[in-house]
Measured scan of single mutants.
Amino acid sequence: KSEISQVFEIALKRNLPVNFEVARESGPPHMKNFVTKVSVGEFVGEGEGKSKKISKKNAAIAVLEEL
Rank of each mutant, 00 (worst) to 15 (best):
K1S: 07
K1M: 09
K1A: 05
K1R: 10
S2K: 13
S2L: 03
S2P: 07
S2E: 06
S2V: 02
E3C: 09
E3K: 09
E3R: 04
E3V: 13
I4Y: 01
I4T: 06
I4R: 02
I4G: 02
I4H: 05
S5F: 04
Q6H: 06
Q6W: 03
V7Q: 02
V7Y: 01
F8Y: 15
F8Q: 09
F8N: 07
F8G: 07
F8E: 08
E9V: 04
E9S: 09
E9K: 11
E9N: 06
A11S: 06
A11N: 03
A11V: 00
A11D: 02
A11Q: 02
A11L: 00
A11C: 01
L12K: 13
L12P: 03
L12G: 13
L12V: 10
L12C: 12
K13Q: 12
K13M: 09
K13W: 03
K13Y: 07
K13N: 13
R14I: 03
R14L: 10
R14G: 06
R14E: 07
R14Q: 09
N15S: 10
N15W: 00
L16P: 02
L16E: 05
L16D: 04
L16N: 02
L16S: 03
P17V: 10
P17W: 04
P17H: 11
P17F: 06
V18W: 01
V18A: 06
V18Q: 03
V18C: 09
V18P: 06
N19H: 14
N19I: 10
N19Q: 14
N19K: 15
F20Y: 07
F20N: 01
F20Q: 02
E21R: 12
E21C: 11
E21A: 12
V22G: 09
V22N: 11
A23G: 08
A23E: 11
A23Q: 14
A23V: 15
R24S: 12
R24L: 11
E25L: 12
E25S: 14
E25A: 12
E25G: 12
E25W: 09
S26Q: 07
S26P: 08
G27Y: 05
G27A: 08
G27C: 06
G27V: 05
G27P: 04
G27L: 06
P28C: 10
P28Y: 06
P28M: 07
P29K: 12
P29M: 11
P29G: 15
P29T: 11
H30S: 11
H30N: 15
M31E: 15
M31K: 15
K32M: 10
K32N: 09
K32L: 09
K32D: 07
K32H: 08
K32C: 12
K32T: 11
N33W: 12
N33S: 13
N33L: 12
N33M: 11
N33E: 08
N33Y: 08
F34H: 04
F34Y: 15
F34E: 04
F34L: 02
F34D: 03
V35Q: 11
V35M: 12
V35C: 12
T36L: 00
T36S: 09
T36E: 04
T36Q: 04
K37H: 07
K37W: 05
K37V: 06
V38S: 05
V38P: 02
V38E: 04
V38K: 04
V38Q: 02
V38W: 00
V38C: 15
S39A: 12
S39F: 11
S39L: 08
S39Y: 12
S39N: 10
V40C: 07
V40K: 01
V40Q: 04
G41N: 01
G41P: 03
G41C: 00
G41Q: 00
G41V: 00
G41I: 00
G41K: 00
G41M: 00
E42L: 08
E42K: 13
F43H: 14
F43V: 10
F43A: 11
F43R: 05
V44E: 10
V44A: 09
V44N: 10
G45A: 15
E46Y: 13
E46R: 15
G47I: 00
G47K: 01
E48K: 15
E48F: 14
E48C: 15
E48M: 14
E48Y: 14
E48V: 15
G49T: 01
G49E: 01
K50L: 10
K50W: 08
K50I: 10
K50C: 13
K50M: 11
K50F: 06
S51G: 01
S51H: 00
S51V: 03
S51W: 03
S51P: 05
S51T: 15
K52E: 08
K52Q: 07
K52G: 03
K52W: 06
K52V: 08
K53D: 09
K53S: 10
K53Q: 09
K53M: 07
K53Y: 10
K53A: 11
I54K: 12
I54E: 15
I54L: 13
I54V: 12
S55W: 00
S55T: 01
S55M: 00
S55K: 00
K56Y: 08
K56E: 04
K57L: 10
K57S: 05
K57V: 09
N58V: 03
A59T: 00
A59Y: 00
A59N: 02
A59F: 00
A59Q: 01
A59V: 00
A60Q: 01
I61G: 09
I61A: 14
I61R: 14
A62E: 06
A62I: 06
V63G: 05
V63K: 02
V63C: 08
V63I: 12
L64V: 04
E65R: 15
E66S: 14
L67D: 02
L67E: 01
